[in-house]
Every structure is written in structure tokens, then in C-alpha cells.
């Protein structure tokens, strides 16, 4: 426990050091706040403009969560199909890899063309960027079931569904949660990307507008908000992960933080 506490202390210390260093750098070098505002300035802007920012925060959060949930659902279904069936794996994998290699910035204009600007393209962008790690991890988890375990269950007369339910899915959980943590960060990238390109709401849009007005502290305030949301959701999923798949992370307690 004391080692754990020490580790947290150092982690907090490093974060503090980062911001203090930044502040000092700005003060000493006399850097213009049009280029790099001081963290204290960013924080002041954040507090001062919070009532205006709040609806945008909610917008970005809602869009991200919607894209994320849809992406996870799609990813789980595709991953399960690919992981269970060798034929599906061989057939669908090349297409999936092709799709996932497309830079998603290039897809946003197409979504805008189809659905207009606003929430829909943002949801779709975040969906399309976050489902791939889920597919890969679910498929890997299912495909790595021990053959002996399968033999034991088949000899008992277990159906394919019995094996999937009792062995395949629980086995996949650690892979699934690892991919959720990656996917939630990706989902934010997708939302903010679409918001900067084609939306009049959301943190991405706020940052875009602020930067064209040279309100650099507000741009940085947007970054702080995104970082905060990202960390909060990452922690939330880590906590759920600890509860569901503690058996797989018994040796390292830093998975919790």
C-alpha cells in the first residue's frame, strides 16, 4: 500500500512539475500569450468562460459516447463473427484493414455530404474510428481459446454457444477492456475532428472559432477540457475493468490508475 501511495505521489508530483515548468518558462522567456499562454491564464479563462463552455462540453461528451457505444456494439458483433469463424476471418479481414487504414479526416467531408453538418457526421466519425481496435481484440480473444478446453467441453456434448458463453466470452474480457480504453480515446479524436471541420457546436468548434479570433487561451482551455474528459472516461473504464477482469491483472495493481 505504501508503495502504491508513493507511486501516486510521484505521478501527481510530475503533473505539478509539468505545469509549474510551463508557467516558469512563459514568465522567464516573456512568451506572448498569442503563442503559448500560461497555464494560470488558461485556467482563469476556463473558469471565467465555463457557463458558455458547458453546453459545448455536453455536446462533445454526448456525441462521443453515442459514437463510442455504437462503435463498441458494431465492433463486438464483427469481432465475434471473425473470432468464431475461420472463413469469416479470412474473408472479411482484408476489407476491414483497408477500411481502418483510411485516414478518418478524409471521410468527414463524405459524411457531411450525406448527412449535412452537425451531430450526425461527428457520431459517425467517432464510430468509424473507434470500432476497429474492438474488432481486433475480440477476435483475438476468441481465437486464442485453448484447444484442450474446447475438447473437454465438446466431449461433454457442449454446443458452440455453450463454449462461447462459458469460455470464449469471459476469456475475451481482458482484451475487450484493453480495447475499450483505446477506443474511448479514439472516439474523442473522431468527434473533435468532425466538430472542427463541420459543426457549429462542441469543443472542437469552440477551439476552431477561438483560434480564428486569436483567443489562444481559450484554445488551450478547450485542450484542457478534452484531456480532462479523456482521463475521466479512461479511469471510469479502468475501474469497471478491475471489477470484471481482476483475475487477469492480479499481478499489477497500477492497472487501476
Amino acid at each position: 500500500m505504501s508503495i502504491n501511495l508513493k507511486r501516486r505521489f510521484w505521478a501527481a508530483g510530475l503533473i505539478l512539475l509539468f505545469f509549474v515548468g510551463w508557467e516558469l518558462f512563459c514568465v522567464i522567456s516573456g512568451m506572448s500569450d498569442l503563442i503559448l499562454p500560461r497555464p494560470s491564464q488558461v485556467l482563469a479563462t476556463l473558469v471565467q468562460r465555463f457557463p458558455v463552455l458547458w453546453p459545448h462540453i455536453l455536446q462533445t461528451l454526448a456525441t462521443t459516447m453515442l459514437g463510442f457505444v455504437l462503435g463498441v456494439a458494431l465492433g463486438v458483433v464483427l469481432g465475434a463473427i471473425i473470432g468464431v469463424s475461420r472463413t469469416a476471418y479470412d474473408t472479411a479481414y482484408p476489407l476491414l484493414i483497408g477500411f481502418s487504414s483510411i485516414p478518418k479526416v478524409a471521410v468527414v467531408p463524405i459524411f457531411v455530404l450525406w448527412f449535412g453538418s452537425g451531430t450526425v457526421p461527428a457520431v459517425l466519425t467517432s464510430l468509424s474510428i473507434c470500432f476497429f481496435p474492438i474488432v481486433v481484440n475480440i477476435a483475438t480473444g476468441l481465437a486464442t481459446t485453448e484447444p484442450e478446453m474446447e475438447d473437454v467441453l465438446k466431449a461433454l456434448g457442449a454446443s458452440k454457444f455453450d463454449i462461447l458463453w462459458n469460455v470464449g466470452l469471459p476469456r475475451t474480457m481482458p482484451f475487450f477492456f484493453a480495447s475499450l480504453k483505446v477506443a474511448i480515446t479514439y472516439a474523442f479524436v473522431g468527434t473533435v475532428l468532425a466538430e472542427t471541420v463541420a459543426s457549429n457546436r462542441g469543443i472542437g468548434n469552440v477551439m476552431m472559432t477561438a483560434s480564428s479570433n486569436f483567443n489562444v487561451p481559450l484554445v488551450f482551455a478547450g485542450l484542457f477540457i478534452l484531456a480532462g474528459l479523456g482521463v475521466a472516461l479512461y479511469v471510469a473504464f479502468s475501474l469497471i475493468e478491475m471489477r470484471v477482469t481482476g483475475w487477469a491483472t492480479r499481478k499489477n495493481d497500477f492497472a487501476a490508475a
Binding site: 485453448e146 478446453m149 469460455v167 469471459p170 476469456r171 474480457m173 477482469t245 487477469a248
Partner: peptide
Amino acid sequence: FQNPTMLPW
């Protein structure tokens, strides 16, 4: 089998 294949969870 030789491998006890107990489910770890």
C-alpha cells in the same frame, strides 16, 4: 489432459 486447463476467472 496433461494441461489442466482450469479457467483462470
